[in-house]
Each structure stands twice: as structure tokens, then as C-alpha cells.
Nucleic acid binder design. Sequence first.
DNA 1: ATGAATTGTCGAAACGCTTCGAGTATCGTC
DNA 2: GACGATACTCGAAGCGTTTCGACAATTCAT
Lengths: 331, 331
Amino acid sequence: MSDVAEAAGVSLSTVSYVLSGKRTISAPTRDRVERAIRKLGFSPNAGARALASRRAQTLGLMVPFSPDTDFGVVMQFVGAAVTAARAYDYNVLLLTHEDGSGMQREAASGSIDGILMMDVENDDPRIPILAGLSVPGVLIGLPNDSQGLSCVDFDFMQATRTAVNHLMSLGRRQIAFIGSPEQALTRRVNYAERARRGFTDGAIDAGVRHVEVACDPELDAAEAALADIRHALPHLDGLVVHNEAALPFLHAACVRAGISIPKQLSIVAVCPENIAQAAAQPWTSVSIPADQIGRIAVDMLMARIEGAPLPEQRLIGSPLVQRATTAPVES
Amino acid sequence: MSDVAEAAGVSLSTVSYVLSGKRTISAPTRDRVERAIRKLGFSPNAGARALASRRAQTLGLMVPFSPDTDFGVVMQFVGAAVTAARAYDYNVLLLTHEDGSGMQREAASGSIDGILMMDVENDDPRIPILAGLSVPGVLIGLPNDSQGLSCVDFDFMQATRTAVNHLMSLGRRQIAFIGSPEQALTRRVNYAERARRGFTDGAIDAGVRHVEVACDPELDAAEAALADIRHALPHLDGLVVHNEAALPFLHAACVRAGISIPKQLSIVAVCPENIAQAAAQPWTSVSIPADQIGRIAVDMLMARIEGAPLPEQRLIGSPLVQRATTAPVES
DNA sequence: ATGAATTGTCGAAACGCTTCGAGTATCGTC
DNA sequence: GACGATACTCGAAGCGTTTCGACAATTCAT
């Protein structure tokens, strides 16, 4: 940097101010400095900058590694977060130690200025740890108690409610909800629960007959679920499915039961967009806007890093996209 | 750190040497220092350390984001790499800018001490950039010209050859290879090509009739491929499939053609382990040992960071695991 | 017992940047 | 033409480590 200063005929601090823009620099001076920077191929040393400014310009990102994770969605979040962070001139450091020791160490050593935590569970043990850290944190997910941390999540309730409204507008009047498998239900109740609530409330408001069941991702389970539902609702004509793993099996079960989709039975899926699109019969769906959520999470984190005193909490909705699995009732 | 020094009654440098172990410190002194560190909850500042030592203790990791990526496998690599890096006391920074500007910037600023590049293509434009950087790089993949960079990759040739040998040992004598879809072939030829070579060489060495075809991940394509093969080999009894996306369709095609697996036709898949296991009829397979490859990649990178002058090149083999899709010929 | 080698500790000089207070022009205003 | 503002720029004091040379205290071989 002193080479740059010399080449431009200015002092070290002037170069620094050109770089950071924290004080006004006259156009000609700035010009000379920038020219010198380019000419010498100068690039500021991150360590020195972190030391002097007490900012690492780096965000920590805790990514989930449990086997029941949908890594496609996770990677969407990750990509969005990295891109958003770059817009603030921040880097992203991978944090994986599920016990939280990683984030404690990195926060204490000043390697990171804030933490993004994905895949937050209902009573996630990492939350109190994150809340007690010296750096701010943002949760992707909506736990019982966010302990003063900002949160973003997909608005599952809005999603299923939108799905119900769509079915209503198509003239469907006996609808069912197929939710997450048990494992997810126990691990992060409110996630699945909010989806179920959206469905139930929507159906009640619409005044139609409805029923809810769970379903494991197997053909047998799908057939059993379908049978249960048709027993309760003999004229079943609409389905909202919030269970991406079971989706192909449900489709197969319907085909084998001789149910025509979308004519006889219209189905709305709540699932990642790529899954909805990739199916042989693409699903009408409400999909998780992972990139938007990732971007907002970074925005929230940056706000707190830059001093925002209060945590925010946002639920991100998503529009329904009609594809091949829903159609109006034929009269 | 000076607080620690004072509390332990030693100098700053002594504390530093206790931390780094770069000079011998007597047991009692080390003990006092360590006690003081714990008591004060001291944790060294990463920025200052990076500045003074010219080591960021951080690895850059370029992860692929193209839509045809198998993120499950990618995440396995990532997890393995992060764990391996931690064993060296290194962190992992996410690099995503496909154009390479990210790695150039981070390398120049000293934020990272080395780079791990995943999903390397045959003539990857990022290779010359990486090779020209001031920090070492390791490729996961085997390009045409590695330009002095270390490489690790899965030994596709060994994999398909092992598959052939397995089929031979079961008494199979008319075997076929179903390879990657066209898109992958054009993008990173040698990857798919090596798999094909392993099959062909194995079959020739065994002196059996064999044939190779490509296959898109669709039911129609699978049925067509199967028909082609049976036309060429009327007594087809063994199949090696290196095309995870087409796997379920091939299975369906066989079932619909009335071919019994594994009795009439035995199939070995070369695919990620979770896919092989998750199938209704679990595939006998040779699977990519992603975590081992990730670990080795980090080992290689660390070797070069610590001064190893020559690049290495390693292909990692993997054992065949017999599951439900292969069985001996019945006499 | 004596010089050489070894062991354990210290002091001080970097490392390359940020930032604060202060200084010098330049400007508009009455 | 003097006065306070305003616009730029500079010097210097950190930021919290690492690391090198020096020094004192032991240990070892002779």
C-alpha cells in the first residue's frame, strides 16, 4: 500500500480513504491513486484490514449435514447467501460443527462478523449458544424461542392456504392434506404444523370437507394414505401435499387406483421448484423461494452487524404456479 | 494475549510459543500459561495472526452450482473437506464465482492459503487462472492438462473394470455398458470416457461379448437402449450402468420387458452409495468414496501449502458392494 | 573444572492496514 | 479583507500476533 501511496504521490492514509470511501477525496487525487492501484496490481491484505478495522468482512454459515436434508434446496440457500454477502463485500466461511463449538471459536477469534444458521429446529440447542455470542446471528427457520435473534422462514401457512384457495377456485370441494412424515414432525414441529394449520384454516374458512394425514415416502404408505382419505371423503377431488419425498409414490398410487389427475383429482404440491418441474406430469406447486430467503437472511444479518438494535422476524410467501396437476372441475 | 502473559507471569512471546509450539517451553511454564488462557477465556485474534504469520489458516473451496450437479455428492465432499481442514486447524471459505475472479481476489488479499476446486471439467477455463495464482490449488477431477496442480479423482476405470470382473465371477458372458447421457460426455469427456474404457478393457481381457450404449434419463430412452443391446447381444446377462439418473428407468424398463433381476440379468451400478441403497431393489454398486476423496484433496493441498514442491495425482478406487441386483448364473 | 551445546525465556521489531486529530488551502459571507 | 466553514490531506498511533536474535541457566562431554 505504501508503494501505491508513493506512486500516486500521496500519503498512506489517503490511499486508505480512497479504498474505503470514508472521507472525501478530490477527484484528481482519487484518480491518481486508483491508477496506481491498478498499475501495481495492489490488493489490500485481508488480515491487516481485519486487525485494524476489527471487521473480518466474513460471515459464518452453518449448513446442515443430516442425511434427511434436501441438499438441492440447501445449495440454493448457500448460493444465494454467498451472492448476497458478496454484494456487501463479505465472504462466507463454512461452519459445520453441529455442537456449536465451531461458531464459538470463530466468533471469539474474530474470523467472522456474524452467523447465518440454516435448518433451525424447534428447540434447537444451538440457539442459546448463538444468542450468547459476541457476534449477531440470523436463523433460517422459526424456532419456539428465537432469543433475540432475527429469523427468516418460508411462510408455510400462506403456502398451504394459497393451495387451498386455488383448489377452491377450481371448484374442488372435498380436499385433503398430506403432510410430512413423522420424523420431520417430531424434529421441527412448527414447520410442518404451520403448513397443516394453513390448510385447515383455509378449508374451514371455505367451509368444505377436509381431512389430514401423514405419509411415509413409500408406495405402500402412499396407497394406504390415499385409501384412508377416500374412506373419509368419498368424493375427494383436491389434494395438498407437503411432502416432497412421497410425491412420486402418491402419483403412482393414484395412477394404480385409476384416479385421473388433474381431472378427477387435482393436486397442489408444496415443494422445491425443481422437483415440481422435473416430474413427468409437472406439479402445480407453491415452491420455497430459497434464493430470496437466503438474500433476506444476509440483509438482516448485515443490518445487525452494522448496528441495528432490534431483531427482525420475517416470513416469506411464494406464489402458486399452475402446472399439470390441477384443473377446474368439469360440470 | 498480554493479559494472559501477565496472569501467567511470562512474556508475550512465551504465550505465543505455548500456543504455536514452535519453541520448547518447560512443562510448568506451559501449564501456567494454559491455565491463564482458560481462566481468561482467551482466544487468539485471527486477523492479527494472519497478518503476522502470513497465513490465513483458511482454504478456499470452489463448489459447483450448475443445475445438473448432484448436490448430495457435492455436500459429501464439502463435509469431508471441512472436517479434514479442521484437523489441520484450517477453516474453509466458500468460493463460487465461476469466472475465477473470486479466487483471484481472495488469494491476492491473503484470505486463503490454498484452493480446492471441485467438479473440474476437461478443459476447465479456471485451471490456468488457478495455476497462475500465488497460492497452491488442488483439483477434484482429472482434466486434460493439470498445469502443475495436484489432482484427485475417483478411479472410474477401476470401478467399471471391477464391475465387469464381478459379473464374470458370477458366470455372466454377454455384458453391456450403459454410460452417461450425451451432455456429460461433451462437458467432461475423460470422466465418462474413463468409465467406458474400464468396461471395454475388462470385457476384452475376459474375452466376452460386450456392447456399449448411452442413455438419457427417461423411460423411453431406457427401453430403446435395452432393445438395442438385446438386439446386439441376444443372451444379454450382465449390465454395468454408469448413469445414476437413468437407473430407475432402466429398472422399470427391465421389469416391463419381463426380464428378471438379478437372475436373468445382473446389473452393477456405478453411482453414489445413497442412491444404490435407497432403491426398492438396492443396486449392487461401486460407489464414489466422496469423503475419502475430499480428505485426500485437503491432505494434498496442505502438503503444498507446507512447501511440497511437486504436484501429486491420485485416483481413488472403491470396492464393489453386492446388493440385490446381481447373482450367479443358474446352471 | 571448562568450554560447547542445549534448553527455556525475553524484548523488540515487524506484519499492512484503519482512524483520529490536526493542518493547510479554498470558499463564501458580511 | 477578515472570519468561520468547508474540503482535502497528512502524520502517527494503534490493532494483536509472530518471530528473530540475544541472553541466562542447565546439561554434557572431556
